[in-house]
Design a protein around this nucleic acid. Structure first.
Lengths: 219, 219
DNA sequence: TTGCATAGTGAACGGATGTTCAATGAAAGT
DNA sequence: ACTTTCATTGAACATCCGTTCACTATGCAA
């Protein structure tokens, strides 16, 4: 049960990004096209590997249907946050599965890759009533403590167009990080809310998975 | 651009709920089965209607692939907190209405409860392993700011036996207040976490509605 | 009445998509 | 050297699933 291969990680990242962008999963042939495989079976094998390693769950026979396995590592209860309108039926309710953890620090690979492997991006569709497509992420790291977001907190992420000053979940080097979005002219930065961290983190290509709307803190 | 039909709304809600639970969209036949249609075309027509009305976007030819149009109307977010185990079915869920708002200050205002009546907290029906019965309360007042609980926050309350040091929702003079429970010998106090408030609030008869387990903060 | 949108049945088509079989080669561990 | 795992090709299969066609029925507005 070791870490993921480079390509497995890349495929997983692509799937996460795809889902975050489209709100539905890619087909095997979508992935095949992206990675220029000559056979769908190449993708199929990787997906099997991802499932065998426990980071992805396939739904046999169903098209564009996957689940990201919740983090197997030690953590507190699988908290789920849900938005709901008044007087709604139970079946109409929406839950935000806890997709995994999010790094609040910049990716530094001093530690092994295993811990970071099982992140998840967005999924879900959303509620017409309130959040369009929301999901919850557990925060790891301390780079946002000045924004009162600490290690172990759970943030609710909503997809949407991020503005200057928003706290966003962004995909950097295959890992989702939580940072404040800074726009200066035509340049974009990600800023950690921690005096001990470098002020601005310039980015050219940026995949924003959503905007942090609220924080759930364990007392 | 009139509103949705009852059935259109129901189908849309079902799709949203399905995605929230499974992290992938339902197929047309999934919907068909749910609503006991004899033909897939019944669903197909409704999906077309939903798309024509602009609330749903189909991706032609792609299976289980949809997008939900962001909602135009703006209203106050009806935030609800919910605990759930992984891989839980929606049918097992039950929702309990929110009790109202909770005063984080000692009872001093005389306010009606009407404004906050419509929130709901939901918990899984079957799973005893997680919170037995949880509910959410919106915090009013500032008496717990030293515990990082501010006005407007939402706290998740779990029934249970409160220990010394727990933050509890207690009923005082007919109003629920949020305080830290202090036990000294055989005496019990409620303590506000605010330097400007009196340290201890002695109580003889105490109705504890639950223990605050987590806080949801709007960013 | 005449439309027109909504709502539905029943059957069928065809493409999209997951899945399997056979086979090759490289890298890594025994 | 031998086995295992990983990575990939190529072709084909089975079916899931979106889509279309033909037809019926209701309620509503012009």
């Amino acid at each position: 049960m070791q870490g993921l291969t480079k390509k497995q990680q890349a495929i997983l990242d692509y799937m996460k990004g795809f889902v975050a962008q489209h709100s539905y999963w890619p087909s095997i042939r979508d992935i095949q096209g992206k990675f220029h495989f000559a056979s769908t079976n190449a993708v199929f094998g990787h997906l099997q590997a991802l499932e065998r390693k426990g980071v992805l769950q396939r739904i046999p026979g169903a098209a564009r249907a996957y689940k990201i396995a919740p983090e197997a590592t030690v953590d507190t209860p699988e908290t789920v946050i849900r938005y709901e309108g008044p007087n709604e039926e139970a079946e109409n309710l929406e839950s935000l599965p806890l997709m995994g953890s999010i790094a609040a620090g910049f990716p530094d690979y001093t530690e092994s890759t295993g811990a970071v492997a099982s992140m998840q991006a967005a999924i879900p569709a959303g509620s017409r009533r309130r959040p369009p497509q929301s999901f919850a992420l557990r925060v790891r790291g301390d780079s946002m403590i000045d924004a009162d977001i600490h290690d172990g907190d759970t943030v609710v992420i909503e997809p949407g167009v991020a503005k200057h000053g928003d706290i966003v979940a962004a995909l950097i080097d295959g890992e989702t990080t939580l940072k404040r979005l800074i726009k200066q002219g035509n340049k974009t930065y990600l800023k950690a809310e921690n005096q001990n961290y470098p002020e601005l983190y310039p980015v050219t290509e940026l995949v924003i998975q959503g905007i942090a709307k609220s924080v759930l803190k364990q007392i």
